[in-house]
Design a protein around this nucleic acid. Sequence first.
DNA 1: GCCGCCAAGATTGTCGACAATCAGCAAGGG
DNA 2: CCCTTGCTGATTGTCGACAATCTTGGCGGC
Lengths: 217, 217
Amino acid sequence: MPADDQKAQAAREALRDAILSGEYLPGERLVEAQLCERFGISRFTVRAALQDLTADGLVKVERNKGAHVRKVTLDEAVEITEVRMVLEGLVAARAAARVTDAQASELDEIGLLMRRAVSAGEFRRYGDLNQRLHGLIRTIGGHHTADSIIETLRGQLVRHQFMISLHPGRPAISLPQHERIIEAIRERDPKAAESAMREHIASVIEALRDIDATELR
Amino acid sequence: MPADDQKAQAAREALRDAILSGEYLPGERLVEAQLCERFGISRFTVRAALQDLTADGLVKVERNKGAHVRKVTLDEAVEITEVRMVLEGLVAARAAARVTDAQASELDEIGLLMRRAVSAGEFRRYGDLNQRLHGLIRTIGGHHTADSIIETLRGQLVRHQFMISLHPGRPAISLPQHERIIEAIRERDPKAAESAMREHIASVIEALRDIDATELR
DNA sequence: GCCGCCAAGATTGTCGACAATCAGCAAGGG
DNA sequence: CCCTTGCTGATTGTCGACAATCTTGGCGGC
């Protein structure tokens, strides 16, 4: 009966979601016994899930001191985003070299929807499109190694990412950057695609710093 | 008594070394019971060690099918090295911005030793210096996030890396590249340091492809 | 009153045993 | 003769219980 398998894996993802959604705050202690009761699974499974999350950098375990939700400082967030900058630059360059005509028009369509969302003031929708654009570029790039690292890093930043996307004025800055990225890939110019992507994410880093400074008021 | 702790951790590293040193070949199956006997530890500890190695990308576990030493194809090796290229480029740029005078002279010294090693034909020594140079640059860069990813990726490539370092003619190609990197960092020119590092690792990728083509004859 | 120390509770680390699952082989039917 | 099917040994997945360790609160001494 594979029901146990599904239960164990479901619980693992439930725990991941609970942390990602902010149900457990950064620094909060994750007591194994509590998680057992919470998700109706054994401690063995809880430990396996915690090790998974540790590998993804979402929790940190100290020997004999248990697991905590990892706290990501501003400096770490900047470092992580710097790494994303060069990796997504690499992926964008490869995307420019590999893009098909069908994918090119899909990029264009996203660009159009983005412009519409911005002029209509639909920031939430713009955020979704942003994610879809970066995802499509990574699909086109087809760089499995870079992809999985980027995905891991993204998980560590959900909190910060969320704050950025709601920051007023961001779309006005990032929309033209996104347009440049799309254009460079459509013209199959790897160097231009890489530098456009890097410029874009460099401005995300600036936004990160600004937002953090704002929050400390 | 912390003896057990040390034993468990020692066994973990012993298993890692056994895989890294090539004692277990890529694709080889790692049977938990055998590892228990081999290292004199319980299955629990073996499983923990295997999960560690999985996180590092050294082994791959399939449900109910056990753990295998991960096979790194040429394409994957190229991808991994591409990621290293952009990450070490990022680190080199930061190193150029942060290098102290003492570190600058240490870089110079390594450069001198490298020239000597090449002219003396001491390839093994040159390989060690190569590793020391890259390590020092990463120390100077002080980019923890990029560092740990680079270190993880390096582990997955030990086999290929080894073949490259013994490839005749490599030092003649890589020595001037190393010299350019050192010079750019010493002159505190981040852009030059990044592009020098990327050129260097791009040529490593070429070497990877050549060696693989040679091996298939 | 303050500091260090000890005991008890709570939490994590480890283990051996049992259950679930898979690979290989033999027997039977087409 | 080949394919399917059921069995059997081997291997991995899961669990509950016990041991080791840390934390907390109270006690005694200075």
